[in-house]
């Protein structure tokens, strides 16, 4: 939607530069006005370099050995910190 909104800019928005426009600029402007200035997002995603084997954008990552190890270490870290917070505290008088 953002792209569409941008492409619907009226031609007069570029009026100031009409007189000095180069052929390439004219081509660009025509492409804009024709609405052929590319479905950019789809193309961008298509041109991404190959994804790594591990997909960190998917929750299925946590079903892999590395994901499970992450959860186990994280859980152990949380657990020991909670244990420490209740056992290591030197509570001041009157608090």
């Amino acid at each position: 939607m953002v792209l569409t909104g941008g492409l619907l800019l009226p031609p007069q928005a570029f009026a100031d530069s009409v007189s000095s426009r180069t052929p390439i600029q004219d081509a660009a402007l025509r492409a804009v006005q024709r609405g052929t200035a590319a479905p950019v997002l789809k193309e961008r995603r298509a041109q991404q370099p190959p994804e790594p084997r591990t997909d960190l954008r998917s929750k299925s990552f946590f079903k892999t050995p590395a994901g499970l190890a992450t959860l186990v270490i994280f859980g152990a870290g949380v657990g020991y910190a909670l244990y420490s917070s209740s056992n290591d505290r030197i509570r001041s008088e009157g608090r």
Binding site: F14, S17, R21, T22, Q25, A28, A37, A38, L41, R44
Partner: peptide, 10 residues
Amino acid sequence: GQVLPGVSVV
């Protein structure tokens, strides 16, 4: 070096 309007930038 001429400016290009209407280019989609992501």
